Computed example of a mutant assay.
Amino acid sequence: MSQAVGKISSPRTVVVIGATNEVGKAVARVLTGRGHIVRGVARSLGVALDYSDALASAFSGADSAYVMIPFDVTAPDLHRFEDEVSERLAAVIAKSGVRRVVLLSGLNAHLRMGTSLGAALMEDRLAALGLDELVFLRASFFMENFAKGMGFVRQAASGIFMTPFRGDLPMPLIAASDLGQRAAALLDATRFPSERIIELHGGGYYTFEQATTILGSAMGRQVTYKAAPFTEARAGMIANGLSPSFADALGETAASFNKGERWALEAPSIRNATPTTFESWAQAFARSQSAA
């Protein structure tokens, strides 16, 4: 879906959940550039998901929203947290009268488990609202997970990168900025698509072994990938500050991937591809590390 050029004559008022993360920033940047009014929701902006009055104010009078269920990697009960957030968001959307919603969901949300369960719960609640225009944007594994959630830089210092995911199975990888641009294009569109689910597979399919070599080479390091037993990986995640609940959810996701369960419902195509390859993302990330 291409982004139109130039500003519009009839701006929308769009609420952007998670406006300070990589995807949310891209959504807000594109929509603001197109002349829309963006209301960001993020704790650092003074509008957190648990600030009921501020959240209701952000949605009041809005006609569109980009919605996501944030990960709380320290939540004592991850799925309870996700359920509470999805219930709160659905209630405020229903009360506000917002008619166009784009939800960031997971490519494997149909499996209703692991780290995509929260998105699946939100899909259910939004579907029940009878919105005029609603899309579940089911995205693949974020390239940024290597830098943040999985700690590639820290692990690369030892020459070995470990996660609980198999190293020999191709994984579709997507850049957050590409996802943000696609979400913004949907919110900006004159004609909203009729399909409820839109898959985004990203910039290509890579095994964890390939991704490790690519990112290590971009950073000037020789790094070997190792698939760790979940018990070992879980202990490491908890030692690094993740809650046991979040670690177990990630373990469910890894187990699903390792068994070869079908995540994407569509075959890879131009329609569900995005422009940033993992090679180009890795080079950009390596440059950002050198400049830091």
Rank of each mutant, 00 (worst) to 15 (best):
Q3L: 15
A4Q: 08
A4F: 15
G6C: 00
I8H: 13
V16R: 03
N21Y: 00
V27P: 02
A28H: 07
R29Q: 09
T32N: 15
G35D: 14
H36D: 05
H36S: 02
I37H: 12
V38D: 06
R39N: 11
V41Q: 04
G46M: 07
V47R: 04
V47W: 01
S52A: 15
S52V: 10
A54F: 08
A58N: 06
A58H: 09
F59V: 05
A65Y: 02
M68F: 09
F71I: 12
T74F: 15
A75Q: 06
D77W: 09
D77R: 10
D77M: 12
L78T: 07
L78M: 09
R80H: 15
F81G: 01
E82P: 06
S86F: 11
L89M: 14
A90E: 08
A91Q: 03
K95E: 09
S96D: 10
V98Y: 00
V98P: 01
V98L: 12
R99Y: 02
V102K: 01
L104K: 06
S105E: 03
G106H: 08
L107H: 01
L107F: 03
N108Q: 00
N108C: 09
A109M: 10
L111Y: 07
G114T: 04
T115W: 07
T115C: 14
L117R: 10
A120L: 10
L121R: 14
L121F: 14
E123C: 10
E123Q: 13
R125V: 00
G130S: 12
E133Q: 05
F136C: 02
S140Q: 01
M143L: 13
N145K: 13
F146S: 01
M150Q: 15
A157C: 03
A157R: 13
S158Y: 07
G159D: 13
I160L: 06
P164Q: 04
R166V: 04
R166M: 06
R166I: 08
I174W: 12
S177P: 10
L179H: 01
Q181S: 08
A185E: 13
L187Y: 02
F192S: 02
P193H: 10
L200T: 05
H201W: 14
G203C: 04
Y206W: 15
Y206H: 15
F208G: 03
G216I: 03
A218C: 12
R221W: 00
K226N: 10
K226D: 15
A227W: 00
A227V: 00
F230R: 06
F230Y: 11
A233D: 10
R234A: 12
M237S: 11
I238L: 08
A239M: 05
G241F: 04
A254W: 02
F257Y: 08
K259F: 05
K259S: 07
L265F: 11
A267E: 13
A267M: 10
P268E: 11
I270K: 07
R271I: 06
A273V: 10
A273I: 14
T274I: 11
T276A: 01
T276P: 06
F278H: 03
F278W: 13
E279V: 14
S280K: 09
A282M: 06
Q283T: 14
Q283N: 07
A286E: 11
R287M: 07
S290F: 13
